[in-house]
Amino acid sequence: MELNFDFMVKYLPWYIDAAILTVKIAFFGILLSLVVGVICSVVQYYRVPIIRRIISVYIEISRNTPLLVQLFFLYFGLPKIGIVWSAEFCAIVGIAFLGGSYMSESIRSGLESVEKSQIESAASLGMSNALTMKEVIFPQALAVSVPGICANVIFLIKETSVVSGIALADLMYVTKDLIGLYYETDEALLMLVVFYLIILLPISIIASIIERRLRYAGFGN
């Protein structure tokens, strides 16, 4: 297998642009999904009536449908009732819609791992509900949730590969384009793999370091 290096150098900027787009969508999507996740999990934790039901319906829907189908609905379906979003915005909303439920489940398992005695102790110290959440429940819950959140982050970055389906020029799209245009399949695929490794490998290593640290933290008490 001989690689055409001139080709790879020539189209490197295409891949860099595409990688930036992938990272951008992943970043904003994940940020939004964390916000959605925190809101949903707190509502479920406090068992807020009615809203809690709506959120559990949302979680079931979002977890049981593929992102690609969600994106097609957002991008091609919604404009028919007058909601026209750019492809990029659709992708971010899609990632947030999908990721929100996964984040919510991870955060909720953390919140529920905090023992009741902790909350009672906080109450006996005269702390308000909000203060208890901020100072007592949340920090402890976070330690339990973080491995799950890290796994979700990696999962969501991988899921962004789907956005080429709504014509966004991400890494997959550029690769398919180059294969179609120049038939330099090996080179295009190699660069695709390398670029995904550049994005995902550091994050996955950081995630495993964090996870290991937290596991040691757990032993002390």
Partner: peptide, 15 residues
Amino acid sequence: RIMPQLVLLFIAYFG
């Protein structure tokens, strides 16, 4: 695990 499934599909189908 680290590769998006779509990348794997592309490798199998095109590569």
